Lab assay of single mutants.
Amino acid sequence: MDLSALRVEEVQNVINAMQKILECPICLELIKEPVSTKCDHIFCKFCMLKLLNQKKGPSQCPLCKNDITKRSLQESTRFSQLVEELLKIICAFQLDTGLEYANSYNFAKKENNSPEHLKDEVSIIQSMGYRNRAKRLLQSEPENPSLQETSLSVQLSNLGTVRTLRTKQRIQPQKTSVYIELGSDSSEDTVNKATYCSVGDQELLQITPQGTRDEISLDSAKKAACEFSETDVTNTEHHQPSNNDLNTTEKRAAERHPEKYQGSSVSNLHVEPCGTNTHASSLQHENSSLLLTKDRMNVEKAEFCNKSKQPGLARSQHNRWAGSKETCNDRRTPSTEKKVDLNADPLCERKEWNKQKLPCSENPRDTEDVPWITLNSSIQKVNEWFSRSDELLGSDDSHDGESESNAKVADVLDVLNEVDEYSGSSEKIDLLASDPHEALICKSERVHSKSVESNIEDKIFGKTYRKKASLPNLSHVTENLIIGAFVTEPQIIQERPLTNKLKRKRRPTSGL
C-alpha cells in the first residue's frame, strides 16, 4: 500500500509539471487552440484576439514586449497534440486509482476541453461567416432531431417561395387574352364579311383624315369586289339584299356627314349593287376616265402658280386654248370622233363635250346612286353658264364675245376644280409618270385663266386698248415650251401688254 501511494504521488507531480508547461500565460489554463508568435511564445487563440482587439494597430507580447499583429500569429499543431495527450492521461489516472485529481477545478476545466467541445467553440470564435457556423452547429449536434426538422422546413419554405415567384413570372405573360375566330364554310359568310367591311370603312371615314380616306375606301372596294366574284351565280339572291343594306348604310352616312363622305364616293362606285361583274367593270372604266381629267386639272394648277410671274407667256397662250382643249377632250372620251376645226366657235365645242359626257352618266342604276348626284349638279351648273353665254354673245361685239367665252371657260374650270378634291395624291404621281406629254398640253388651259381676268378688268373701264407692237421672242419661247399647242394670231399678242400698262397708270386715278 505504501509503495502504491508513493507511485501515485509521483504520477500526480509529473502531471502537474506537464500542466504548468502547457498553461497559457494569460488565462493560466491549458492552452486552447495554441497560437505561436514571432517571438516563439505560445498563447491561446481566444486570449490573443481579445488582446489585439483592445487597441488599434499592433499590440505588445505580454512576455517579451514585442509587437504582435493578427497576421504574425501562427497555429502550432504540436502543442495541440500534447494537450490532447495530457487530458487522456489524466482521465486514465482517475480510472485506475479511483481518486480524484488534486486540482479539481483545473481538471474539471480540462475535462470540459474535450475535442468535441473544442470544435464547437472554434466554430463560434472564428469569423467564418453565418453559413459556415450553421453547418458546423448542425454537424456538432446530430442528436437534436427537432433542430434538423426546423432547419429543413425553413430551407424548403425558402425554396418554395423562390419557385413560386419564378412560376408566377412565367405564367403572367401567358394570361394575355387570345381571340380565335371559328369560321364556317357556308355561303352566307361572304355576304356577312362584305357588310362588315362596308360598315367598318364608314366608321374609318368618319375618323380618319382626308388623305387616308381614299386609300381605305379603295382597299375595301377591292375586297368586296373579290368576294362578289368568288361566289357562284346561284347565290345572287343572297347578294341582292346585302347590297341593298350597303346602299342604305352609305346613304345614311352621306346624310350625316356629306363633306366627309364625298371624298370616298368616287372610289367606292364599283361596290354599288350589281347584278353581274360586267356592270362593275364598266363603272370602273368610267371612274378611271374621270380621275384622269381631274388629275390633269391639278397639274394645271401647279403650272399656273409657276407661270404667274410671267405675264407675257400667259398672254401669248390665249389663242392656243381651243387647240389644246380639243386634244384633251379627244383623250378624255374613249369614243372615236373627228377633231373640230380651228376656226369653230369654242362654245360649240363645249356643248358637244357636254353631250358626250351626259350619255356616260345616263345609266338607270347610276342615277339612283348618291355619288353621281355631285356630277349631275356640276353638269347642270355648266349648262347654266353656257345659256348665259349665249345671251352675252348677242349683245357684245366679236372681240368682247371672245373674252366672255374665255371667262366662261374659266368658270367651267372652277367647277371642275371642285372635283379635284376627290382624287388622291398617289394617283397624281402615277398620271405624271405615265403621261407626261398630256400633262404639258393640259398646262396651257390653266395658264389661260390669267388672260381671262385681264379681259374682265378691261370691260370694267369700258374700253380695250391696242398697240401695234411685235414680240417675236415671246412667241418662239412659248412654242418651244408647249409641244401640242397651235400657232397664235400676232394681233392679239400685241394687244395684251398695252392693256396691263394702261391699267397700272389709271388705277390711282380711279381711286381718287
Rank of each mutant, 00 (worst) to 15 (best):
Asp2Val: 04
Asp2Ala: 14
Leu3Trp: 13
Leu3Ala: 09
Ser4Glu: 12
Ala5Gly: 12
Leu6Asp: 05
Leu6Lys: 02
Arg7Asp: 08
Val8Ala: 12
Val11Ser: 12
Ile15Thr: 00
Asn16Gly: 08
Asn16Lys: 07
Asn16Val: 05
Asn16Pro: 00
Ala17Gly: 12
Ala17Arg: 11
Ala17Ile: 01
Ala17Val: 06
Met18Arg: 00
Gln19Glu: 13
Gln19Ala: 09
Gln19Cys: 13
Gln19His: 10
Lys20Pro: 01
Ile21Pro: 03
Leu22His: 00
Pro25Asn: 01
Pro25Cys: 13
Ile26Tyr: 12
Ile26Asp: 02
Glu29Arg: 12
Glu29Thr: 06
Glu29Asn: 04
Glu29Trp: 09
Leu30Cys: 11
Ile31Val: 10
Lys32Leu: 09
Lys32Arg: 10
Lys32Ser: 12
Pro34Gln: 03
Pro34Trp: 01
Pro34Ala: 11
Pro34Glu: 01
Val35Pro: 00
Val35Leu: 06
Thr37Gly: 14
Thr37Pro: 00
Cys39Trp: 00
Cys39Pro: 00
Ile42Pro: 03
Ile42Thr: 06
Ile42Arg: 13
Phe43Ser: 12
Phe43His: 00
Cys44Asp: 04
Lys45Glu: 02
Lys45Gln: 06
Phe46Cys: 14
Phe46Gly: 12
Cys47Ala: 00
Cys47Lys: 02
Cys47Leu: 03
Cys47Glu: 01
Leu49Val: 00
Lys50Ala: 11
Lys50Thr: 03
Lys50Asn: 15
Leu52Asp: 02
Leu52Asn: 04
Asn53Gly: 10
Asn53Leu: 10
Gln54Ile: 01
Gln54His: 01
Gln54Glu: 06
Gln54Ser: 10
Lys55Tyr: 13
Ser59Cys: 12
Ser59Arg: 12
Gln60Val: 08
Cys61Arg: 00
Leu63Ala: 05
Lys65Ile: 04
Asp67Cys: 02
Asp67Arg: 04
Asp67Leu: 12
Ile68Pro: 02
Ile68Ser: 01
Ile68Met: 04
Thr69Cys: 15
Lys70Arg: 03
Arg71Met: 15
Arg71Cys: 10
Arg71Leu: 15
Leu73Lys: 03
Leu73Arg: 01
Leu73Ser: 00
Leu73Ala: 02
Gln74Trp: 03
Gln74Ala: 13
Gln74Arg: 04
Glu75Arg: 11
Ser76Asn: 15
Ser76Lys: 03
Ser76Arg: 06
Thr77Pro: 12
Thr77Ala: 11
Thr77Met: 04
Arg78Ala: 15
Arg78Ser: 14
Phe79Cys: 08
Phe79Gly: 04
Phe79Ser: 07
Phe79Trp: 14
Ser80Glu: 07
Ser80Gln: 13
Ser80Asp: 05
Ser80Leu: 11
Gln81Val: 06
Leu82Lys: 00
Val83Lys: 10
Val83Glu: 00
Glu84Phe: 00
Glu85Thr: 15
Glu85Gly: 13
Lys88Arg: 14
Lys88Pro: 01
Ile90Asn: 12
Ala92Ile: 00
Ala92Leu: 01
Ala92Cys: 09
Ala92Glu: 01
Ala92Asp: 03
Gln94Asp: 13
Gln94Glu: 11
Gln94Gly: 07
Leu95Asp: 06
Leu95Cys: 07
Leu95Gly: 02
Thr97Asp: 01
Gly98Gln: 13
Leu99Met: 01
Glu100Ile: 12
Tyr101Cys: 01
Tyr101Glu: 11
Ala102Met: 04
Asn103Arg: 11
Asn103Glu: 05
Ser104Gly: 08
Ser104Val: 09
Tyr105Ser: 10
Tyr105Cys: 06
Tyr105Trp: 14
Tyr105Asn: 06
Tyr105Arg: 10
Asn106Met: 03
Asn106Ser: 03
Phe107His: 13
Phe107Met: 15
Ala108Tyr: 13
Lys110Ala: 06
Glu111Gly: 08
Glu111Thr: 09
Glu111Gln: 08
Asn112Ile: 09
Asn112Asp: 15
Asn112Leu: 02
Asn113Asp: 11
Ser114Ala: 06
Ser114Met: 03
Pro115Thr: 03
Pro115Cys: 08
Glu116Cys: 01
His117Ser: 12
Leu118Thr: 08
Asp120Cys: 01
Glu121Ala: 07
Val122Asp: 04
Ser123Trp: 07
Ile124Arg: 08
Ile124Glu: 12
Ile125Lys: 14
Ile125Glu: 09
Gln126Ile: 05
Gln126Trp: 10
Gln126Pro: 04
Gln126Leu: 09
Ser127Gln: 01
Ser127Lys: 06
Met128Tyr: 12
Met128Trp: 08
Met128Thr: 02
Met128Arg: 04
Gly129Trp: 15
Gly129Tyr: 12
Arg131Ile: 11
Arg131Asp: 12
Arg131Cys: 06
Asn132Ala: 06
Asn132Arg: 08
Arg133Val: 10
Arg133Glu: 08
Ala134Trp: 10
Lys135Cys: 04
Lys135Leu: 10
Arg136Val: 03
Leu137Lys: 00
Leu137Val: 08
Leu137Gln: 08
Leu138Asn: 13
Leu138Val: 12
Leu138Ser: 02
Leu138Arg: 10
Ser140Gly: 11
Ser140Met: 09
Ser140Leu: 05
Ser140Lys: 12
Ser140Pro: 07
Ser140Cys: 05
Glu141Cys: 01
Glu141Ile: 15
Pro142Glu: 11
Pro142Thr: 11
Glu143Val: 06
Glu143Asp: 05
Asn144Ala: 04
Asn144Ile: 09
Pro145Trp: 06
Ser146Tyr: 04
Ser146Ile: 01
Ser146His: 09
Ser146Cys: 01
Ser146Glu: 05
Leu147Pro: 12
Leu147Gln: 03
Leu147Gly: 09
Leu147Glu: 05
Glu149Cys: 05
Glu149Phe: 11
Thr150Arg: 11
Thr150Met: 14
Ser151Arg: 10
Ser151Tyr: 10
Leu152Asp: 05
Leu152Arg: 10
Leu152Phe: 14
Ser153Cys: 03
Ser153Val: 09
Ser153Leu: 06
Val154Pro: 10
Val154Lys: 11
Gln155Tyr: 08
Gln155His: 13
Gln155Asn: 03
Gln155Ser: 09
Gln155Glu: 07
Ser157Val: 08
Asn158Cys: 04
Asn158Ile: 02
Gly160Ala: 06
Gly160Asn: 13
Gly160Ile: 15
Thr161Tyr: 08
Thr161Ser: 10
Val162Leu: 05
Arg163Gly: 07
Arg163Ala: 10
Arg163Gln: 04
Arg163Cys: 05
Arg163Thr: 08
Leu165Tyr: 05
Leu165Phe: 04
Leu165Val: 10
Leu165Ile: 12
Arg166Asn: 14
Arg166Leu: 07
Arg166Met: 04
Arg166Tyr: 13
Thr167Pro: 12
Lys168Cys: 04
Lys168Ala: 10
Lys168Asn: 13
Lys168His: 14
Gln169Glu: 05
Gln169His: 04
Gln169Tyr: 11
Arg170Lys: 03
Arg170Gly: 12
Arg170Asn: 14
Arg170His: 09
Arg170Val: 11
Ile171Lys: 04
Ile171Ser: 14
Gln172Trp: 04
Gln172Pro: 03
Pro173Gln: 10
Pro173Val: 06
Gln174Asn: 03
Gln174Met: 11
Gln174Ala: 08
Lys175Val: 07
Lys175Thr: 10
Lys175Tyr: 06
Lys175Met: 07
Ser177Tyr: 03
Ser177Lys: 03
Ser177Pro: 06
Val178His: 03
Val178Asn: 06
Val178Arg: 15
Tyr179Trp: 06
Tyr179Asp: 09
Glu181Gly: 08
Glu181Cys: 03
Glu181Asn: 10
Leu182His: 01
Leu182Phe: 12
Gly183Ile: 08
Gly183Val: 05
Gly183Phe: 05
Gly183Gln: 09
Gly183Arg: 09
Ser184Thr: 15
Ser184Pro: 07
Asp185Phe: 15
Asp185Pro: 13
Asp185Ser: 10
Ser186Glu: 11
Ser186Gln: 06
Ser186His: 04
Ser186Val: 05
Glu188Cys: 06
Glu188Ile: 07
Glu188Asn: 11
Asp189Pro: 04
Thr190Ser: 06
Thr190Pro: 13
Val191Met: 05
Val191Trp: 09
Val191Thr: 11
Ser217Asn: 14
Arg252His: 01
Arg256Gly: 03
